[in-house]
Amino acid sequence: MSGARAAVLGAIRQSLGRGPLDAAAQRALDARAPVHPRPQLDGELIERFIARATVQAMSVRRLARRSEIPAGVAAYLTQHNRPLRIAVAQPLRALDWPGTIAVESRAAQQDDAVSVTPCFAAIAETGSVVLLSSPETPTTLNFVPDDHIVVLSTSQIVWHIEDVWQRLRARGTPLPRAVNIVSGPSRTADIEQVVQLGVHGPRRVHLLVVDEDLSFASSSKRNEL
């Protein structure tokens, strides 16, 4: 409703005691590149990330090579007694999955128990993984299954949240539909302020942190820190 738009903007300007900003003032605002204070973080980057992720109630396993990912997933399924049927994001499909596990690549369905996805980046400050929506990495995989296994390379770990924005801008394309910054399993404290995991999203989030570079994550256009 354009009438409402004009009315709201007009009311804002009236309250500010001025008309629309001129072109020069608008350019100055658009050029604003704020650098706000960031938390000082110390220690070693990868260790800090893993420590934070653990505090956020994620389980973490380190692997040396990408070829170890399928075995890492299989071990998790056995350990937690999960069904041997997993929804795997397309970029991980090409891995050498054992014949005992049924692997499907698609958006999540209501009865999916376990998903395995790559991620775009991981943040040491908050112990979070950053997941982008795409035809190969549908968002539902991050939220519908009970168990979400996220595969990342140590080279994807950055210090601060702002480093993720830089990497996103460096892709040179507009943001995808969804950018999910996930810091652990779903939780609530809505009943008597008791913290309870697994209310709507995954009950468990497991990270496989691989020392080797993961070529399937190349769409992230890695920059040097």
């Binding site: 934070r52 956020q56 698609r106 958006a107 999540a108 400050e125 908050t126 112990g127 979070s128 929506s133 795409s134 035809p135 549908p138 968002t139 539902t140 507009p174 943001l175 995808p176 539909r177 969804a178 950018v179 999910n180 910054i181 996930v182 810091s183 652990g184 399993p185 779903s186 939780r187 999203g201």
Partner: peptide, 21 residues
């Protein structure tokens, strides 16, 4: 909390080739 569990940026509707959203 140092960060909430889910911080999500939504930008527009699903893209033509997206499988969900």
């Amino acid at each position: 909390q140092a960060s909430e569990t889910y911080t999500t940026l939504h930008t527009g509707p699903r893209r033509p080739t997206d499988l969900d959203g």
